[in-house]
């Protein structure tokens, strides 16, 4: 039985369209124009217990909206969700005791108090027994190396330190399912690695199910085998991270080094030139033309060294998003409704 089960989930928002300018603003006091935005447009997936899944997509793709529906914060327009057998937006206490939501851009700790005071409050709200609290609290503070910061007011902590505290607050009640929205945003590389490491270890030790969004490809590459790629509210890929290249990369990179300094006079005939520093040449070639292009180059020139590479996943994904964005602007995704 899947831990998270999402079927044909939709979320539409009605947003007020406000044209620029004072005149338009005054007009909009009396007559408002709304448009319907499909933030999540019919996505379905399942996540097994103990899986760590990455949620990828550009800004406004619907990642956070989906996480919010899974956490029961907002109601969907249609579709069904079951997490550990619960319907999230019914907000049953039994459900809320078993999951955690961590948002990199928001903080829930009491700003003027040491993090420990917020942890003690969580202990009461989640009804954590003394022994268990002591043990988990000890383990987490050790894992994240923050033992000496526990009695400092949160406002005096650095962003990275604060994020670690937020993570502890989210994990104190030993949740079975963890939703992480940009947990490493704004952190330096050391702090990012630290948090990543902690999540990895935590997932291995406790077999918690984790759904994670991040803008940092590194996070996803390090943590998740499986990714869900969402764009304009639709799921465009559900599978292994490395399959993304195979499925969506339209080109390969050809790196060549020529002998004797003799190089093609018009390299653009073979493909798009991305780098030209004699005697080296890098070409971006459509995948189906690679064999033909390579054999031609090898036949006509003295090639010293040749490498054929896939573009980085990051590049593939950003190209993919650009492509779908162009499509979407042609589609009619916006239905205008008037409200007097």
């Amino acid at each position: 039985m899947a831990e998270i089960h999402v079927r044909d989930l939709h979320k539409n928002y009605r947003v007020h369209v406000k044209p620029a300018g004072l005149g338009a603003s005054v007009k909009s006091l009396f007559h408002r124009t709304y448009k319907e935005v499909q933030a999540v447009d019919g996505i379905s997936f399942e996540i097994e217990p103990g899986e760590m899944v990455g949620f990828l997509g550009p800004n406004g793709a619907g990642k956070t909206t989906t996480l919010k529906m899974l956490s029961g914060l907002i109601y969907p327009s249609s579709g069904s969700v079951s997490v550990m057998g619960f319907v999230p937006w019914q907000r049953k206490n039994e459900y809320r005791r078993q999951f955690a939501l961590l948002m990199g851009q928001k903080n829930q700790l009491w700003w003027d108090l040491p993090a420990n005071e917020s942890f003690r409050l969580h202990k009461e709200i989640y009804h954590i027994e003394d022994d268990l609290f002591k043990r988990v609290h000890g383990e987490l503070t050790e894992l994240l190396e923050v033992e000496n910061l526990l009695d400092q007011p949160v406002r005096e902590l650095s962003l990275g330190e604060r994020m670690k505290m937020e993570l502890i607050a989210a994990l104190l009640h030993s949740p079975r399912v963890l939703f992480l929205d940009e947990p490493t945003i704004g952190l330096d590389v050391v702090a990012q690695t630290n948090i990543r490491h902690c999540l990895q270890q935590y997932n291995q030790e406790r077999q918690v199910t984790i759904l994670l969004t991040s803008h940092y490809m590194r996070d996803i590459e390090a943590l998740c085998d499986r990714v869900l790629v969402i764009d304009h509210g639709r799921l465009v890929h559900d599978g292994l991270l490395r399959d993304i290249t195979e499925r969506f990369a339209t080109h390969k990179l050809l790196q060549l080094r020529f002998q004797n300094g003799r190089m093609p006079e018009r390299p653009e005939e073979f493909g798009e030139v991305t780098d030209l520093t004699p005697p080296r040449l890098t070409l971006r070639v459509p995948r189906e033309q690679v064999p033909q292009c390579v054999s031609h180059l090898l036949d006509c020139y003295d090639v010293d060294d040749i490498a054929i590479e896939d573009p980085s996943i990051e590049n593939v994904i950003s190209a993919l998003f650009r492509q779908t964005a162009e499509q979407a602007s042609d589609d009619v995704v916006v239905a205008e409704t008037m409200n007097g």
Binding site: S71, L101, I125
Partner: peptide, 15 residues
Amino acid sequence: RKGDLDFVLVKPANT
């Protein structure tokens, strides 16, 4: 306004 109500809503106690 800031969306911090989220943290209240996910807590297993009466909102």
